[in-house]
Design a protein around this nucleic acid. Structure first.
Lengths: 241, 241
DNA sequence: ACAAAAGTGTTACATGTACACCCATGT
DNA sequence: ACATGGGTGTACATGTAACACTTTTGT
């Protein structure tokens, strides 16, 4: 294969988007990886993504790739731009600038279906951090940056509700924080704090009955987008676990 | 002029960088604007910036444009990527994706000199917010996003020291917060808080004598990059002023 | 002595942390 | 009655807000 080094030295860069799609499954933070079906990095795990088409906006390209490569419906998921990566040697085919997006999927999202999605699968984040060199391109770095963005936004925004189904309990919301941050939180203080933060969650009136124990109030995400006071992860509350 | 609409519909987008260079001058938050020397938007105020060259990294292009268009030495300024703008109609010449950078210059920075910089001048932010349509392209939006990034980062990072000269007093640092946030802070509480946050500032041992009054201890920026606890702007302390 | 700016002490209040205890349900 | 998970009360530590007061300088 001689696809490298054949472009003129000052060719205009091509522009792509890559997606870091996070969810909480089986009490672990997981992300959607595909197996590359062509060179370079054939067969290696990589982020879903692709080149910008025509006069498309980056946001539109991200939603299109989300649907094409994973079968997930982008219009219902949280999706935000994170960073543009531009090292000239990051893609052996030539200069490719990749704009990374962070997407958050609720836990119930199915393992994925869709046209180009046969090779897509949920992967625990830990697997990526313990063997970052297994990934194609600079995708390990992109993942690290996007995950840090998500961790940070849990502090001062209502992003955590995007990890939950339409209706959820405070306990489920707390588990999102615990899994994303990798530390335990006191359920009782957490519960009070969330419910006292105006607009974070609104009760639906219904209850969910656990297998055993008192039924929990069900909530939906409220109108608030930012949190004051923030939920800070730097506290001394729970231990790492 | 018929520079618009002449490109084939699916031409690859071009990539540019734009710079939002902030400083505190005359007790106001100001940014560096240039006057456009060619179409489109000839003669209109705009952000310094330009197209990516060859196999250049975005960060390198931002530093290069910073120097070429403003004469400022990019290697000594805080410079960070903020967001990529990609609306296909944002530039009448065709599809141009612009990656915005936020730069912070210390107050002492001279009005600017340099090759291509004759038209560059410091402009109070207020002038932009009160007449956003005067600016070329979507630059008013880019400025709004970058300024919000700066305001937000003062809360939980040590970015404020980037607005100060090498040595500064706590009062000068407080004025940075006040000017950027547009609200007053209690000097006495602020001073204690800054000095108690380990690594934010370190005393140089020298003092600065004001025209009248007690000399102030001089500090340099310390090793810390993030602040815990943060300096939150949402408090009820000072009034707007 | 006085003005001006830097810096300390003190008090009231808000929020965070830890944990004992009570509530609602299934078995 | 008991186990299990949801939820409340409360004491203490930490941080914020407001402001009286002291310190150090120049005139």
């Amino acid at each position: 294969m001689s696809t490298t080094g054949t472009r003129p030295p000052h060719a205009a860069p091509r522009v792509a988007v890559d997606l870091v799609i996070l969810t909480v499954r089986e009490s672990r933070l997981q992300l959607l990886l595909i197996e590359r079906g062509k060179q370079p990095y054939l067969g290696r795990p990589a982020l879903p993504g692709g080149f910008l088409r025509g006069h498309e906006k980056l946001d539109d390209a991200a939603r299109r790739e989300l649907h094409e490569e994973t079968g997930l419906n982008g219009s219902r998921l949280h999706l935000e731009q994170v960073h543009a990566y531009s090292r000239p040697d990051r893609d052996p085919r030539g200069h490719v600038i990749s704009v990374a997006y962070l997407a958050i999927a609720p836990s119930l999202s199915e393992p994925v279906a869709g046209s180009d999605a046969r090779r897509a699968r949920w992967t625990p984040l830990e697997q990526v951090t313990s063997a970052p060199d297994a990934l194609a391109f600079d995708h390990a770095q992109i993942i690290a940056d996007a995950v840090e963005r998500a961790r940070s936004k849990l502090e001062y925004t209502t992003l955590a509700t995007a990890f939950c189904a339409d209706e959820f309990t405070i306990s489920e919301l707390r588990q999102v924080y615990e899994v994303v941050w990798g530390r335990s939180l006191d359920e009782r203080n957490f519960s009070r704090k969330i419910r006292r933060t105006e607009g974070f969650v609104v009760p639906t009136g219904a209850k969910r009955r656990p297998e055993t124990g008192r039924p929990a109030t069900l909530y939906r995400g409220g109108p608030a987008k930012t949190l004051y006071p923030p939920v800070l992860r730097a506290g001394i509350d729970g231990d790492l676990r």
